[in-house]
């Protein structure tokens, strides 16, 4: 019996910064529904200390959740970026857009750069498929 499954998985709160990635754009042009696009898009980059706190290894899947949605994506460890605990990076995509608020203050502009959510280990659950 896997004793670990009875323990509550550690959970952290992060703010998400979305960004553009050239390889993601290329993959989108080639095939929006392809594995390459999914691999580059359905991903969250976390500070190594945050990964450690979550008890998640890079490449594992994590659950991202807030009141607007729940998605499973791959966790990555940041590379050249200076340490950024509590801030996570996601390429802008359908996956990040599942977590954006519908509040716009009547101005027609969604709060794409104001995403707060919780991260927990997905314990092997597969990455959310691209569908609507």
């Amino acid at each position: 019996m896997d004793f670990g499954s009875f323990l509550a998985a550690p959970e952290i709160k992060v703010k998400v910064v979305t960004y553009r990635d050239i390889f993601q754009d290329k993959a989108m042009i080639e095939n929006l529904f392809g594995d390459e696009y999914k691999h580059i898009s359905a991903v969250i980059t976390l500070d190594s200390a945050d990964l450690k706190q979550l008890n998640v290894k890079k490449g594992d899947t994590v659950i991202l959740k807030n009141s607007f949605g729940r998605v499973v994506v791959r966790a990555e460890e940041s590379g050249y970026e200076p340490s950024h605990r509590g801030i996570a990076y996601m390429p802008k995509s359908s996956w990040s857009n599942m977590l954006v608020s519908d509040e716009t203050c009547g101005k027609g502009i969604p709060r794409f750069q104001d995403i707060s959510l919780t991260v927990t280990s997905a314990k092997g659950e597969k990455v959310t498929e691209l569908e609507f």
């Binding site: 929006l32 529904f33 949605g69 599942m98 954006v100 608020s101 519908d102 794409f112």
Partner: peptide
Amino acid sequence: LPRSIAKSLLEIPIISMGPSETL
């Protein structure tokens, strides 16, 4: 668009024009 907003599109008929397959 944020999914929370785009979902309203499901309630109306859509005509799409474009070169590639998308959602």
